[in-house]
Design a protein around this nucleic acid. Structure first.
Lengths: 201, 201
DNA sequence: CAGCACTCATGACATCTGTCATGACTGACC
DNA sequence: GGTCAGTCATGACAGATGTCATGAGTGCTG
């Protein structure tokens, strides 16, 4: 019996996934969490064979929760389920020791098999994401550039970005301009969008 | 037995929802579609008691598919399932005759009950979304303003927006400026974001 | 038919954005 | 200790953006 802690902030989806998994005779969802903090707490409580976390959750996202579990050294393999299969996120997940990375476009019939594999010591990365990640550009941006693009995502003026980052507006303009040049785009918004799509932010 | 056609482009989620629903003794998922076009085709083929469509799908989204079903006059009630509960989308859905509007944060245990209600002639709107929609600003923007904000969402320059819309750049600047004034924001990106959040685009 | 709202456009202008140059400072590395 | 990359900043400048005014055309409504 593979005992699983499942985490997803969307109740309906989480319940449906639990229903799907509980159809399997060798798989049991022993606890469900609706955010990353609860996920880690329940995993520590239940010591499951496997943790299945949705990537996008409030507070600690799936990746941060996986990091916390790893830090706690419980040896619980983590499988991340994600709507947006962004290559940079996959890289970060694998670096974090995540054993499975499953886009929501994966056939439902395949999930149990993937979880069994991971439980048996294997890893799972969707072939398409793997290919995409292998050909993906390495992130050419510095930490500061990424941070400013994160803020720029909200659409505000350069001045408001500078206020939020506690920098001079000239400094922000320089950093964003540098990022735009590296990415070959024309506006900071395109740069932010690109960085998001690649999974860098 | 309530016969359902289910549509969602994310295989895993769709399969999980089907598993959840098929646990109910009086509910049966008779067909599954992964986009709006297939959803409408399968609904016409199977003549289900109910259609359950995810809002965000490629090609026809859930709303457009509901519109197509309504146009076909098959009398199939539609329930939309959505990740982002945006008030403008709810309004449009209800105008389109959608009988149920279910955010993914809804407890899984509640879905079957909601579907039974709708099948019995009722309607379901999540109370929080209903409240949000009732207090939501009416869309103050013209069709043209909305269209330009849609294009502006991608982050491109004014010039590229003008090219895509087949308008002069001055015209685009005027429309976007007008939209920004109406929404009380400072950049076109903030305007686009706001319009999206309200469900206007 | 007049008024109104919307669409489309031009033009003037102030401000914002992006580019480029430059330089000071810091920490890591050889 | 010198070099390098990253961080932060200032300043100059050209072009993009946003604001405002204005006007022509269209279709709808009372």
């Amino acid at each position: 019996m593979i005992r699983i802690v499942l985490a997803d902030d969307e109740d309906l989806i989480r319940g449906a996934l639990a229903a799907l998994l509980n159809l399997e005779s060798d798989i049991e969802v022993v606890a469900q969490a609706d955010d990353g903090v609860a996920a880690v707490r329940l995993a520590q409580e239940h010591r499951p064979d496997l943790a299945v976390f949705d990537l996008e959750m409030p507070g600690w996202d799936g990746l941060a929760a996986a990091h916390q579990l790893r830090t706690a050294e419980l040896g619980i393999p983590v499988v991340l389920v994600t709507r947006h299969a962004r290559p940079g996120v996959l890289k970060r997940a694998l670096t974090e020791g995540v054993r499975g990375f499953v886009p929501k476009t994966t056939p439902a019939s395949k999930l149990a098999e993937i979880l069994r594999d991971v439980h048996a010591g294997g890893r799972y990365v969707d072939p398409e994401i793997a290919a995409s990640a292998l050909t993906a550009a390495n992130c050419p941006l510095t930490a500061r550039e990424l941070e400013l693009l994160r803020i720029a995502q909200h659409g505000g003026t350069i001045n408001s970005i500078a206020e939020q980052a506690h920098l001079a507006t000239g400094t922000v303009r320089n950093y964003l301009s540098s990022a735009m040049t590296k990415l070959g785009v024309q506006t900071r918004h395109e740069a932010a969008r690109r960085a998001w799509e690649e999974g860098w932010i």
